[in-house]
Amino acid sequence: MSNNDRNIVLQAEGLCKSFSVVGEKLKVLEEIDLKLKKSSSLSIRGDSGCGKTTLLNLLARLEPADSGLLHWGAKIINAQDKPCSKEANWRAKYIGVVYQSYYLIPELTVLENVMMSVRLSKLSLTNYKERALQLLEEMGVGNKCQQIPTKLSGGERQRVAIARALVNNPVVILADEPTGNLDERTGGEVMDLLLNTCSKEGTSLILVTHNPNYARATEQSSFLKDGRLIYE
């Protein structure tokens, strides 16, 4: 294995995915090849419904592909296999996720929401509490630790979601339109925070976005069209 290969934290080879729609097979992704280096960032743009979220789901192994291979670092996964519980444990430590709708758990406080990643990764709560507080401070919501998510604004919620994705030091962050629900100014601030923190923490990022400005801010940009990933 070359040094170059060793730097690759996430790789997809020939990923294909189709859905059955009214008895007909609709191909969404065709022969997707993707390589993500350590501490690098990749943006994926594309029209609505072109399969961006599906690609992220396949990369996170939330659903099986029709064919293809996945590399999570040195771990090679046959993408058409049904996701198993062993992969769930691995995913908890390896991949962080950020969604457009934040998905914060309303019954938990901000800090407890962030610490959920630590709990799911089966890491020490005591060791990671400091890091969670520090991340929340960096995200500008340090003073909202004990509040419940419903009391926060959209921008604040997304900052908490980013802190939650980063708290257990994952290798890759998969962000699916993280600014989709935010106004332009707040969205810009959140995006800056996400990119800067990932860069500072050395975390690789795959960003799905419609905004070309945010896409340009990543090291690599790509466009998903007709099921194929075109690098710009």
Binding site: S85, A88, N89, Y103, S117, L120, S121
Partner: peptide, 10 residues
């Protein structure tokens, strides 16, 4: 769905 995406087993 989120809990599974975050690494929780089904």
């Amino acid at each position: 769905g989120l809990l599974v995406a975050m690494g929780g087993s089904r």
